[in-house]
C-alpha cells in the first residue's frame, strides 16, 4: 500500500482498507486524520512506520479492559444473559460456552427464554445434550421472563455454578421486544442480584448498523461485553472498533465456526492484524 511512499494515494488506500473492514466512515476518517497528524509530529516517514502507528492506534481504540467473563463471588450461581438481533449466533455461542464450562467441571444450566422462534428451545436442547448441561424450557409462546425465573430457581436448587439465559433475537428498534428483554433482566436481578454478564452477540458481517445495535442494547439492558461471531468468514468485524470507541463496550469472545470448539477469547492483537491482512 505504501509501496511508493506516504503519498495521498496511500492515505486514500488506508482509508479504503479501514472502510472495507467495516470500521465505519466516521471512525475511519478520525483515525486517518489522527494518523496523519501523528506521523507528521513524530516524523514518521516510512510505510512500515505508518502501518505500525495505525496498528497501535487501533489497538488503543480497542482498549485494555478486562475481557474475562464475570463470575459470582457469593453463594448463588453465576448468571450470564445473552442478547442480540436475529440470527447473530446467540444460541450457538451459548452452546459453545456451556461446553467450555462443563469441561472445566462447572455445572451449567441453560434457560431457553427464546419462546418465540420456531424450534428455538429444541435447538438449545440439542446443545444441552451435546455439552451435558441441564435445560430449562417451557412451551412456545410462554413468557420469557418466567423461563428465566425458573432457570434461576433450578440452577439455585441444584447448586449449579452457572446459568446461561438464551433470549429471542430481536431488532433493537422494536420497542416492545426491547422492553420484554428488560423485563427478563429485571426478573433475574430480583432473584440473583446484579448479573455477572449481559452479553451482546454481534455478527462480524454486520455493517454500520452494529453501532445502533450496541447502543440500543446497552441502553435497554446495560450490556457488559460483546461476543463477535462468524469471524471465520471473510468479514473482519471492524464495526467493533467503532463500538468500543463510541460506547466503551469490550469484545470478550469470538465465534469461529459452527462447531462446539469454535469459540475463543478475543485477542486484540490478532484482531488488528486480521483487519490488515492485505496491507
Amino acid at each position: 500500500l505504501f509501496g511508493r511512499g506516504i503519498t495521498d494515494e496511500a492515505w486514500d488506500g488506508l482509508e479504503e482498507a479501514l472502510i472495507s473492514a467495516d470500521v465505519g466512515v466516521t471512525a475511519t476518517l478520525e483515525i486517518v486524520e489522527d494518523l496523519k497528524r501523528r506521523s507528521r509530529e513524530e516524523g514518521v516517514v516510512t510505510a512500515e512506520g505508518v502501518v505500525a502507528l495505525l496498528k497501535q492506534e487501533l489497538r488503543d481504540a480497542l482498549g485494555s479492559t478486562d475481557r474475562s467473563l464475570g463470575r459470582a463471588d457469593d453463594e448463588g450461581p453465576t448468571v450470564w444473559l445473552v442478547t442480540g438481533v436475529n440470527g447473530t449466533g446467540k444460541t450457538t455461542t451459548i452452546g459453545k460456552l456451556a461446553a467450555v464450562e462443563q469441561r472445566e467441571q462447572r455445572q451449567v444450566v441453560l434457560a431457553a427464554a427464546d419462546t418465540f422462534r420456531a424450534a428455538a428451545a429444541e435447538q438449545l436442547g440439542i446443545w444441552a445434550e451435546r455439552t451435558g448441561a441441564a435445560l430449562v424450557r417451557k412451551d412456545e409462546g410462554a413468557d420469557p421472563a418466567s423461563v428465566a425465573f425458573e432457570g434461576y430457581a433450578a440452577a439455585n436448587e441444584r447448586e449449579a455454578d452457572l446459568l446461561i439465559v438464551d433470549t429471542a433475537g430481536r431488532l433493537h428498534n422494536k420497542r416492545e421486544l426491547m422492553d420484554e428483554l428488560g423485563k427478563v433482566k429485571r426478573v433475574l436481578e430480583k432473584q440473583a442480584g446484579p448479573l455477572e454478564e449481559t452479553l451482546l452477540v454481534l455478527d462480524a458481517t454486520t455493517g454500520q448498523n452494529g453501532i445502533s445495535q450496541a447502543r440500543a442494547f446497552l441502553e435497554a439492558v446495560e450490556v457488559t461485553g460483546i461476543a463477535l461471531t462468524k469471524l471465520d468468514g471473510s468479514s473482519k468485524g471492524g464495526i467493533v472498533v467503532a463500538v468500543q470507541r463510541e460506547l466503551g463496550l469490550p469484545v470478550k469472545l469470538v465465534g469461529l465456526g459452527e462447531e462446539i470448539d469454535d469459540l475463543a477469547p478475543f485477542d486484540p492483537d490478532l484482531f488488528v492484524d486480521g483487519l490488515f491482512e492485505q496491507l
Partner: peptide, 12 residues
Amino acid sequence: IDAMIGQEAVNV
C-alpha cells in the same frame, strides 16, 4: 441476504 450486512456483501 441480511440487510444489515456490511462491506463484504459484494464478495459474499
